[in-house]
């Protein structure tokens, strides 16, 4: 019998996340011999990004892509890759994911979900009007941030951290309410950041992750061969996703350059300051974490050696 799934995701067609999903769907259809068809509704057009987890969990859609960081208030593990300095390179992000995977598998299983793919966001950096020569250049700047962790980081770097909804960013820039952004090259091009600032200083610092979740009940209803096809295509999407993320990072940096922006690697003292801020946050994270969560962090630290 043929099965049709509906998939919800929150990013536009041009985003590498969506391109990765498209490829995954193609592979699932081929590998399952056309037994499973997936109708992707990207760009919040069916379910808004923040609501995708619940939509998959409650069976409104069978499959969807979530941003793990959105659920930081539900469990400490969702926050680990949000802490500055925990995983600053793609390589570390891969190892962190491997360490987190068994924990997440268990957590999602309890919630009737199954993660088939993890994809990391490209690293982040500061968008500023003036070039950053050192930590002193950040002092007192009005920085738009988007989470508790980035707020703490901004404040410890001596900046005035301001939480604003994404949609208020352009207006806030043009009125001088904010002077700088801290985000990825992807988000920078999304808001066409070159209209407001001229310099992107890459710090790496963190690689948040997206995950593709499947409703476990819907998954169980597939025959064994199709289940295998889904899992394999999901695994392939994880591998491809990391490559696409790296490529997208370079591509987006080129887009920034083509609009006259200067790209620079961060000065050492800024990186050091971020690391110090991050270490403090890790200690706080560990203090609040359960034994299982702590074990994940320790396994990750071991895998780095």
């Amino acid at each position: 019998a043929q099965t049709a799934w509906t998939m919800a995701s929150g990013y536009p067609e041009s985003s590498f996340f969506t391109q990765n999903i498209r490829q995954m769907i193609k592979e699932i259809e081929e590998k399952s011999g056309g037994k499973l068809k997936i109708d992707l509704r990207s760009n919040d057009s069916l379910i808004k990004l923040d609501a995708v987890k619940r939509a998959v969990q409650s069976g409104q859609v069978q499959i969807g892509e979530i941003r793990l960081g959105v659920y930081g208030n539900e469990g400490a593990m969702y926050n680990l890759d949000n802490i500055p300095g925990v995983a600053t390179t793609f390589d570390q992000a891969t190892k962190l994911t491997d360490a987190q995977r068994p924990f997440f598998d268990e957590l999602f299983k309890k919630n009737g979900l199954r993660a088939i793919t993890y994809v990391a966001w490209p690293g982040q950096g500061f968008y500023t009007k003036q070039p950053l020569k050192g930590l002193a250049d950040l002092k007192g700047q009005k920085l738009r941030i988007y989470s508790k962790q980035t707020q703490i980081m901004g404040e410890r770097l001596g900046m005035e951290a301001l939480i604003l909804p994404f949609a208020e960013v352009p207006q806030a820039f043009s009125t001088g309410m904010i002077q700088s952004l801290w985000t990825s090259a992807q988000t920078g091009t999304d808001v066409q950041v070159w209209d407001y600032v001229k310099h992107f200083t890459y710090t790496g610092t963190m690689h948040n992750k997206n995950a593709i979740l499947v409703n476990e009940r819907a998954f169980r209803q597939l025959d064994a061969a199709t289940q295998k096809a889904v899992l394999e295509a999901g695994e392939a999407a994880t591998k491809r996703g990391w490559e696409l993320a790296k490529k997208a990072s370079e591509e987006r940096e080129n887009v920034l350059k083509s609009h006259g922006m200067t790209i620079a690697q961060s000065p050492k003292d800024i990186l050091d300051a971020i690391e110090v801020a991050g270490k403090g946050m890790v200690q706080e994270w560990l203090a609040a974490a359960t034994a299982e969560e702590k074990a994940v962090y320790e396994n990750y630290q071991k895998s780095l050696k």
């Binding site: 923040d50 969990q57 409650s58 959105v70 208030n73 539900e74 508790k148 939480i163």
Partner: peptide
């Protein structure tokens, strides 16, 4: 009831 069962929490500072 479902949000209670799912332990759904708002994503912002208010949690």
């Amino acid at each position: 009831l479902q949000s209670h069962a799912f332990n759904d929490v708002s994503p912002g500072l208010l949690a």
